[in-house]
Design a protein around this nucleic acid. Structure first.
Lengths: 212, 212
DNA sequence: CAGGTTGGCGGACTTTGGTCCGTTTAGGCT
DNA sequence: AGCCTAAACGGACCAAAGTCCGCCAACCTG
């Protein structure tokens, strides 16, 4: 289990194709995104089928899937602008989210920013993070790297792999929706919980010791 | 957010119907479970459709869904025996899993036992915990209560709601499969990680303080 | 501008989880 | 035993994600 760290942020936005795409392809991509955004906003993400999006965009279903591959990927694409802002924030933004603050403060700020993102786009994000896509998506790879670096900085001797994945699981949309829905928590409650969780781990990371 | 605690373990096994079911219903339920178990074992859970199970069981598709409601619920039913053993273990079993050990040791033992369960039945469990069923399933309700009681015992002043859900998220099948697959961790590594996580929280639960 | 090729297009098709409803039958009652 | 009814049965049906492949037209080349 060696985590690679070289060239951390080279391909943060989805990597561009070498071959440029044809004009009609670009046009159709834009049409599809527009139609999806509109339908999702009008009727709720869960109540819109891929056929409807294709029809509203004036393209065939094959085109839709050729461009985006799956419903989850389409949802992810809809969020890419907001996602890039978020990533900019913790990579190059101002402290405490960006560089400059101590790592554990940055970690807390990261979680809070991610929670804000989820609160704003829970429905679409839920459509994007279904199934295996949840852990394999490009954003998660970026988050993973970011948290790994922060935890290494906070505690160089400790292998952060497991903790990183656990913390990311705490910031998954499924859990978020469950906490807000069935558990009846408010966004502020969840942020507080996250802060306590990370804060609580402070003593742990440098020297994990079994209780008792 | 008030967590109810009265009568903690009354309906741990799925509650029985008042009206007993008809003989053919019972027979068909057994046939379906047998067929599903066999097909899942032979060809892998992911490669067996509900139609195939119905056919192999010699019943109609309607019957299958009438009995179990969904693919996820069928998978859950297949695990119920093992699940009940697990619950017996942490409710009435020997320490450190059962009563008698200090709460944080019990918590660690709980996670390890759950990880063992996942290692044994990852495929079926993955089919059982798709979508919203993950948080709403009867087992999760039991786990939630158990962890709530343990954390209350360890630290009476602190509201454990968020921490409970986070810890449960760390023991989800999705994450487990990701850790074993893409992250290349072994079962033992994950157990170690869990132990460190819980151990690390030790100092936090009584008096959560922000790092720095 | 004409021709060719190659990526893109679109919709019919497949798969599969889940629903509906007309038909059948188990089992209590007389 | 015969009847009656509620429960159960089963398979046709539906919705929706994803695939396939023959046709078309965008762009390059001459």
């Amino acid at each position: 289990m060696e985590t690679r760290l070289e060239l951390p942020m080279v391909d943060l936005p989805l990597l561009e194709q070498a071959a440029p795409e044809r004009a009609d392809a670009t046009r159709n991509r834009a049409r599809i995104l527009d139609a999806a955004r509109r339908l999702f906003a009008d009727r709720g993400v869960a109540c819109v089928s891929m056929d409807e999006i294709a029809a509203a965009a004036g393209v065939g279903k094959g085109t839709l899937f050729r461009r985006f591959g799956s419903r989850a990927a389409l949802a992810l694409a809809l969020l890419s602008e907001r996602e890039i802002c978020f990533q900019e924030g913790f990579i190059r933004g101002a402290p405490p989210l960006g560089p400059g603050a101590p790592p554990l403060e940055r970690l807390i700020a990261f979680g809070e920013a991610r929670l804000d993102l989820m609160a704003d786009h829970a429905e679409v994000l839920a459509a994007a993070e279904i199934g295996p896509a949840r852990f394999d998506s490009p954003p998660y790879a970026v988050y993973r790297l970011h948290l790994t670096l922060l935890l290494r900085e906070a505690s160089p001797a400790h292998d952060p792999t497991y903790l990183v994945e656990t913390l990311l699981a705490s910031l998954g949309v499924d859990l978020f929706l469950h906490l807000r829905g069935a558990r009846g928590m408010m966004l502020a409650d969840i942020k507080t919980g996250w802060g306590e969780l990370v804060g609580g781990l402070t003593g742990a990371v440098p020297a994990p010791v079994l209780a008792r």
